[in-house]
Amino acid sequence: MGTDETTAGHLQELRRGTVVLACLIRLRTPDYGYALLESLNGLGITVDANTLYPLLRRLEKQALLTSEWNTDEARPRKFYRTSTEGERLAEVLTADWHLIDEALRRLTTGDER
């Protein structure tokens, strides 16, 4: 039981930064909170609503996302889209992701340069 909790905690820590990257990539096409949540979870990037909604707001505050209210339907929805700055950050994060992946691969195979 304790081991499971420890594993879950570490998994959550490992995935925390990847949710940001996933959002920035996914929101190249504008979408609203719940649709994003569904599509990320459908892809296997598990994220909780209580994490995602505050995250979107934070990214918007940092000007990495822009938002627009869509009032065409009965329920107004806030559509987020990755900004130019967000796009730049996504590139940096992706490059870093590949570096880490490569480093871990080499560590595992014992090929430490």
Binding site: G33, Y34, A49, Y53, R57, P76, R77
Partner: peptide, 11 residues
């Protein structure tokens, strides 16, 4: 208010 209504409604 608007964000909350959207979120509660969708959920």
């Amino acid at each position: 208010e608007r964000e909350l209504r959207e979120r509660i409604g969708d959920a």
